[in-house]
């Protein structure tokens, strides 16, 4: 299983609609609206890089998304 964070920049005023569409994408495990350099962080959980490509592709097709940066998780420690 491969996990990745996709950091997304959105055009002003398009966040709510974009979130609505992201919630429908397969393999999206978590979506957070954030305040800072980026506007949204998506955590994707996929079986292979092919599926990750499909997730980023779907996100980039959403109206208002101006830039995505994908960070593949190599190692993780978490409370949950």
């Amino acid at each position: 299983m491969i996990s990745a964070y996709i950091l997304i920049m959105i055009q002003p005023g398009k966040t709510d609609k974009a979130i609505k569409e992201m919630r429908r994408i397969d393999n999206v495990a978590k979506i957070s609206i954030i305040a800072g350099e980026y506007d949204i962080v998506v955590r994707a959980q996929v079986k292979n890089l092919e599926e990750l490509l499909a997730v980023t592709d779907d996100i980039q097709m959403i109206e208002g998304v101006t830039k995505t940066t994908t960070q593949i998780i190599e190692k993780e420690i978490s409370l949950q």
Binding site: S3, Y5, T69, Q71, K75, E76, I77, S78, L79, Q80
Partner: peptide, 26 residues
């Protein structure tokens, strides 16, 4: 560095990532 980050109170996730950033911490 990962272990030092994990020792900080309030940190719930530490991930080493490949790309623009080396760590994403929650």
């Amino acid at each position: 560095t990962m272990n030092k980050l994990w020792d900080i109170r309030g940190v719930s996730h530490v991930t080493v990532t490949g790309g623009k950033y080396d760590f994403i911490v929650k």
